[in-house]
């Protein structure tokens, strides 16, 4: 007795199906914990916020007046009677702080990370990296307070400027108001997030293949050309990741704007805080503003991911 070829094949395919099913099941089991985590802690809360944001003027303990876009319209629609340009102004200021902080961190962080990764004595490197991220171990409140004592009118910075003016005849540097200005916020935020930028850029630069830099020099590229045409493109993913992290976290920070920003430093994160914990307790508006922030950040991530991947897209 011999089995017919067809039945053999059938059995074979059945076996194959079973294996595929098993493989699928295996993959699902592997994916389940992160998937569940994502749904529980990311998707559901976001949907909840979205839901609340669609009820105009919702306050806790009230049922609200039904769904509508009132909260968003109040922020974005100039033809709405409830529209107040102050919200856009606040969003604009937050974007300004976040962008400024990101740029400052990048401009200051790159040389430091470059030095740490490529030039600092090898045996000191770990120590130096730790020393550089040491400020992260202190409370951000404490750091903000340290800046207050530096930036306040009778603080270290103005004392230093005064000393310079006294020490250099003919040079008259004006003592300035630093504390409670946008500059103070940018300084505080930059100081707060610079270590993150340095850390990420360092990780990226450390992986940089030195022979690529040598190859560039070998081919006649000046150090400047090598930097812009090899080092920067090679570390672009790190730069993007660093910028993203600093942008998002500085956008969400409200300790620094609150403590260093003074009387005109309302940011979107503080505004959201006020909507939830302030006197109006307008959860609807607060959620709408949160959604705006979530969307803005998501958009940034999407753009950077796309931009960062452009090379590989091009090659495909």
């Amino acid at each position: 007795m011999t089995a017919s070829p067809t039945s053999k094949r059938w059995r074979f395919s059945q076996l194959e199906l079973g294996q595929q099913f098993k493989r699928l099941l295996g993959a699902l089991t592997l994916l389940a914990p992160p998937g569940l985590w994502l749904i529980l802690f990311l998707v559901l809360p976001t949907l909840l916020i979205l839901d609340i944001s669609l009820v105009p003027g919702l306050r806790p303990g009230e049922s609200g007046d039904g769904y509508g876009l009132g909260n968003y319209s109040r922020v974005f629609n100039p033809f709405d009677a409830a529209f107040d340009s102050v919200y856009l102004q606040v969003i604009g200021r937050s974007l300004y702080y976040a962008t400024g902080t990101t740029l400052a961190c990048l401009l200051m962080g790159f040389p430091v990370a470059y030095w740490l990764a490529l030039m600092a004595p090898r045996r000191w490197r770990n120590f130096l990296v730790v020393a550089f991220i040491l400020p992260l171990w202190t409370s951000s409140l404490l750091r903000a307070y340290a800046w207050i004592s530096i930036l306040r009118p009778s603080g270290l910075l103005n004392s230093f400027i005064g000393w310079l003016s006294g020490g250099l005849p003919g040079v008259q540097l004006p003592e300035q108001a630093w504390l409670y200005t946008s500059a103070a916020v940018l300084i505080g935020l930059t100081y707060n997030f610079l270590p993150y930028m340095v850390l990420i850029l360092y990780a990226s630069l450390e992986k940089l293949d030195i022979s690529l830099l040598e190859a560039a020099a070998d081919l006649g590229a000046t150090p400047r050309q090598t930097f812009w045409q090899v080092t920067v493109p090679q570390t672009l993913p790190g730069i993007a990741a660093g910028c993203l992290l600093v942008f998002i976290t500085s956008m969400g920070d409200f300790v620094v704007p609150t403590l260093l920003g003074g009387a005109s430093s309302m940011t979107i994160s503080r505004l959201i805080y006020n909507q939830f914990l302030g006197i109006t307790r307008n959860w609807g508006l607060g959620s709408a503003l949160s959604m705006v922030m979530i969307l803005a950040v998501s958009l940034m991530i999407a753009l950077l991911l796309k931009y960062g991947d452009r090379d590989s897209v091009k090659e495909a």
């Binding site: 003027g57 107040d84 102050v86 919200y87 102004q89 606040v90 200021r93 009387a263 005109s264 430093s265 309302m266 503080r270 505004l271 006020n274 302030g278 006197i279 109006t280 307008n282």
Partner: peptide
């Protein structure tokens, strides 16, 4: 009037 207070407050701290 709470909402009104809050709106003006947002403007004050933003201006």
């Amino acid at each position: 009037a709470t909402a009104l207070y809050d709106e003006f407050w947002t403007r004050v701290t933003s201006a």
